[in-house]
Design a protein around this nucleic acid. Structure first.
Lengths: 204, 204, 204, 204
DNA sequence: GATGAATGAGGCTTCATTCAT
DNA sequence: CATGAATGAAGCCTCATTCAT
């Protein structure tokens, strides 16, 4: 199937926002990389801010779908949380997912002052709520320890997962002396598992 | 003591880079906020990129000093690692520290393509190495479990700590539905402690 | 035929570089005189330096064409050299030729340090080589005295011809007490002719 | 003798105007090269334009003195003209003379529009008049052919001499394919001599 | 005399956006 | 839908010049 110009612009923008950041991704650059005329971008998407938001929403929506799929394979609440985390970690290693854009240009950080983020925030909220659901289900079914406050746990999980993807990105750009080996993500997941699981001592 | 213009520019820039990000922090804005003429910035600091790097280095160096101080109070390797983490978490709640700038404009993300980051990276490396020292000392003195690979542990710690500061920042900007309560940072610290400590079962 | 904006910019720049020199020919001035917006200059020509080089090349190329034409009317080598000189002298009295720009902003003198002149120099070299051809042809056909070293002769001819156009320009700007009468260029040509011709004594 | 700051500024400026041209010779650059503070230039010389004019006048006055000296050695009018030319050619090969500045920043071409050149022009006029004197003396004493119109002859001489110094400069900057050998200036002088001398045939 | 901080105008250039074709 | 010329605001930076010390 041939990709239409409109879609090609979106794909190119998704990649460039991730590689260059919001400010350095220009209309001209997008047009060049997509092989179309400057004006066509505005023609299809209006403003740069608008295009950016659409990119973010697309990425988040795709991620959300993946997360939903992953739940299907989870045997209990704990596993649905861990699968959730795995989805995010996997996206961070999949260039086409556009996850890089999320990291570089967090909707919160990249946009021009005063822009209307409400749409993006709505999708973000859905992600958060889905996580809360998973946690609560885990507490319910006994796979997650009952003394956890769901909101706090969600905060911990998101910060740990996104923190590790971001750290890995920085390391991959050759910045710190640290090597992020293949053990890194598994280590993060095991920490999360230990954090969520009921105390093992009782099992022994 | 009265602050000279040169220092005032640096302070203003530190704040603005944190609040607005690199791209939206303009000469004009800095000059207005500092109450001086546009040209003075270039006079004292050469270029925007240069000023930015100086800001980052200042922040990182201050942080490094705090970390060194914190080690004085640590009884063993484990505690020096945890104090290290506490220093970073504390900086994230101290506006004057400029930590916000670090989060928004990671040296890795903010600068224009092709800039020379070597100086900043040198300071970053010192932070990383200091952490590695702490971990190794802990393994040596038995306060940290011996089966940990120091590099992997450092990766985990940095990603967890910076991830949590970043998540808290995003939440503080009212972005997610999550409330980051006062329990959040303690929770992060306790997770790290559990991750590093030798297995408790022997104590029982 | 209506002149497009792109061409109008080039024409305006050609004139202004000649009248004001490189440094004082500003984007704003070009835009005003051409009746277009500042940004259009960069849009069409990239940079001021680039525009300047294009102007120079255009002028030199036009001159080269005239020189080629003039050769058609030359009966022998000597005449082709003299026609060559006449072409340059004529250009210096033809405002549209842009010759003034050549005098004011010699490629050698006007550009900012470190610019890439190679293209201009290539055209210059073609002018020089064409002159050498003419001289050698004249020596061959006996119309130019055989004891002349072609390189030296070319140096003399160029310095004399360009020197006279430059002196005339300065005088025309009312600078010296000297009046450059209509006899001036003919006098220069006759000096060149005497310099090149075989000794007349043989004719007598 | 130690050079005072004021004099050092003048010397440095003389050199830099020659090397860089008017526009690219900045206060900062002069101050750096002279090893003094920025503000001192304005303190001593007022404006850049003023400093430039002083430089030019200094150069021209020095040249005028040399020309006067050369006349002392001339046996007749023709020789005084040729010595005059020799003085100029010699200055063009003497860096300290500042002649380069005359070539690069002809008073006529370099200054900002609307500047008051009257002082420089006065010195220029003295140079021109001195040349006219020499020519007339030569006609008077029979060493220069009587049918020459003095003004025209002066124009020819100046344009030829300055033209050759300028061409040599361009060549020395490696610009054309032409090599300006040591024969060049002698050739120019011999052409001038032939131009001025009474017809030799009568002597034979 | 000497310093160098400070000013502010202006230069080149980039860029999102508009619009005629 | 598509092009790319055109706009003009704004950004970074340079620079001559002033001035307090």
């Amino acid at each position: 199937m041939v990709m239409g110009n409109k879609e090609r612009i979106l794909e190119t923008a998704k990649r460039l926002f991730g590689e260059l950041g919001y400010a350095e991704t220009t209309y001209k650059r997008i047009a060049q990389d997509a092989g179309i005329a400057d004006g066509l971008i505005a023609h299809h998407y209006g403003s740069k801010e608008n295009l950016f938001q659409l990119v973010e929403i697309t990425i988040l929506t795709d991620l959300l779908r993946k997360i939903d799929e992953s739940r299907y394979y989870a045997s209990d609440g704990l596993n649905s949380v861990l699968n959730f985390a795995k989805c995010i970690l996997k996206a961070s290693t999949t260039p086409e997912s556009g996850f890089l854009t999320l990291l570089r240009c967090s909707p919160f950080l990249a946009n021009t002052a005063g822009a209307d983020n409400s749409e993006i925030l709505a999708v973000c909220s859905r992600v958060v709520e889905k996580m809360l659901e998973c946690i609560k289900a885990g507490i319910e079914d006994g796979s997650i320890r009952a003394d956890l406050e769901p909101n706090l746990a969600a905060s911990v999980i998101f910060s740990t997962v996104f923190g590790s993807t971001r750290a890995r990105l920085l390391a991959s750009e050759n910045i710190l002396g640290l090597n992020f080996s293949d053990d890194f993500y598994p280590e993060i997941l095991s920490i999360l598992a230990r954090y969520l699981e009921p105390l093992q001592s009782t099992k022994a």
